Simulated assay, not measured.
Amino acid sequence: MPPPRLIVGLGNPGGQYEDNRHNVGFWFVDQLAARLQAPLTAQGKFLGRVARRGELWLLQPMTYMNLSGQAVAALARFYKIAADETLVVHDDLDLEPGSIRLKQGGGNGGHNGLKDIQARLATADFWRLRLGIGHPGERAEVVSYVLKAPRREEQELIDRALDRCLLAWPDLAAGDYAAAQRQLHVKTVSP
């Protein structure tokens, strides 16, 4: 597999959303940018906060979750980055807090950010790093649930998952997705 050239962290811009479950993709990109010493800066042309390290781009769309594809498509088209060179990091209701799944392609699971990216790239063949946030139990509660901060014990599990993702970064950066999956797809242990 080709190594990723674009890492997209999904979330919503603005201080009121900063600690929300829906922003775990932003949290990962913030931590990766710090690790790579690649500061994120606003770039209107790409509708987001962007950092570059060699051939690698980091992106936090500032379009709000439901329009994430606008920013992804703008950067990917400008730099001719293929879908299989793109890794989208996002929250996942179907996974328990602390669980991680890495896969290429597939459905969007009702995630509006993924829906928009699929529509604007005209493919679902990008990679996804799915970070579990758990489910509120009732479909009607999903919107308010993702727009709230995790409980303390959930936050600890999510933080550990983010640490595991950073530990797997060398394999991800090399395009060795199978090795990254072996590191990431482990059973979570409660704090």
Rank of each mutant, 00 (worst) to 15 (best):
T123F: 00
L6W: 03
G15M: 13
L75T: 11
P39G: 06
G106H: 03
L147Q: 09
S68Q: 06
G175W: 08
I117K: 01
E55L: 13
G48N: 08
T188R: 10
Q43E: 11
I133H: 03
L172Q: 00
V146C: 10
A122V: 11
A174Y: 00
L6Q: 04
R53W: 12
Q60K: 15
P150A: 06
A140K: 10
L114F: 05
F46Q: 13
A140Q: 06
L59S: 15
A76V: 05
M65W: 05
R130M: 02
I117F: 00
I117M: 00
R53N: 14
R130F: 02
G109D: 13
N23K: 11
D163R: 06
G14H: 03
G107I: 08
H22G: 12
N12I: 02
Y17S: 08
G15V: 13
R139C: 02
D125C: 00
R77I: 02
A76H: 01
E96K: 08
Q16G: 05
H90D: 03
F78K: 11
E154K: 04
G14C: 09
H90G: 02
E141L: 15
G175L: 06
G175K: 04
D94Y: 01
L102R: 04
I81D: 01
R130D: 02
L32T: 12
D176V: 09
H90C: 09
L184W: 01
K187M: 07
S144R: 13
T123K: 00
G25N: 10
E156T: 03
A161R: 04
N20Q: 03
L166M: 15
N12P: 09
H90Y: 07
M62H: 07
R101G: 04
S144A: 14
A178C: 09
Y177H: 03
F28I: 12
K103T: 07
F78M: 07
Q181C: 12
G106A: 13
W57M: 10
N12T: 09
A51I: 02
P136S: 06
T86V: 07
D171Y: 07
T188G: 10
I133V: 08
L147N: 07
W127I: 00
L114C: 05
F126S: 04
A33T: 14
K148D: 11
A140W: 03
R77C: 06
N23E: 12
V24H: 04
H90Q: 09
K115V: 02
Q118F: 03
G54T: 14
Q43G: 02
R160C: 07
E154C: 04
R77L: 10
N23P: 11
